[in-house]
Amino acid sequence: MGRKRFITDSYPVVKKREGPPGHSKGELAPELGKDTQSLSQEEAKLELLRQFDLAWEYGPCTGITRMQRWHRADQMGLKPPLEVHQVLKTHPEDPRFQFSLWHLYPL
């Protein structure tokens, strides 16, 4: 019997080009357009609410509004951010602000 064959024996070796100067493989490229200073006020507020949705220390956020979740966390002594409560009070009728990230997904 001869040498054991590998699937890579069937394909030619292709060398990859080096990346742009100053960029190493271990570094992540900065995300385009994600600078917090360039966000509008509304986008910054929505990002704050998204982060609140993703923070599990305040309990689950499915099936209830953000305001209900904030009040529940406050009653349980979990000290939710006051900035979140202020943003929710300033936009009481806007569903983008009141409903969590997961409100469009069925339970």
Rank of each mutant, 00 (worst) to 15 (best):
M1F: 01
G2I: 01
R3I: 02
K4I: 13
R5K: 13
R5Q: 10
F6A: 10
T8D: 09
T8H: 05
D9Y: 01
D9G: 00
D9N: 05
Y11C: 05
Y11D: 07
Y11E: 13
Y11R: 04
P12C: 01
V13G: 00
V14Y: 03
V14Q: 09
K15E: 15
K16N: 09
K16A: 06
K16H: 06
R17Y: 04
R17K: 12
E18Y: 03
G19A: 15
G19C: 11
P21T: 05
P21M: 10
P21G: 07
P21Q: 10
G22R: 07
G22C: 08
G22W: 08
G22D: 07
H23R: 14
K25T: 06
G26T: 05
A29I: 10
P30E: 14
E31Y: 04
G33T: 08
K34C: 10
D35L: 04
D35A: 06
T36M: 15
Q37P: 00
Q37Y: 03
Q37R: 13
S38V: 11
S38N: 13
S38T: 15
Q41N: 11
E43N: 05
L46K: 14
L46E: 04
L46D: 06
L48P: 06
L48G: 05
L48V: 09
R50L: 07
R50Y: 04
R50Q: 06
R50A: 07
Q51T: 03
Q51P: 00
Q51I: 00
Q51R: 13
L54C: 10
A55S: 12
W56H: 12
E57A: 12
E57I: 14
E57S: 10
Y58V: 01
G59Q: 06
P60C: 05
T62F: 08
G63K: 05
G63W: 00
G63H: 03
R66T: 09
M67T: 13
Q68C: 00
Q68T: 12
Q68R: 14
H71Y: 10
R72H: 12
R72Y: 09
A73G: 12
A73R: 12
D74K: 13
Q75A: 15
G77F: 09
L78T: 03
L78A: 08
K79R: 12
P80W: 07
P80G: 08
P80D: 03
P81L: 07
P81N: 11
L82M: 14
V84H: 07
V84I: 07
H85E: 12
Q86Y: 01
L88C: 02
L88F: 02
T90V: 02
T90Y: 02
E93L: 11
D94W: 03
D94A: 08
P95R: 09
P95N: 02
R96P: 00
F97K: 04
Q98F: 08
Q98S: 01
F99N: 02
L101T: 08
L101G: 00
H103L: 03
H103C: 07
Y105K: 06
Y105F: 14
Y105G: 00
P106H: 09
L107I: 02
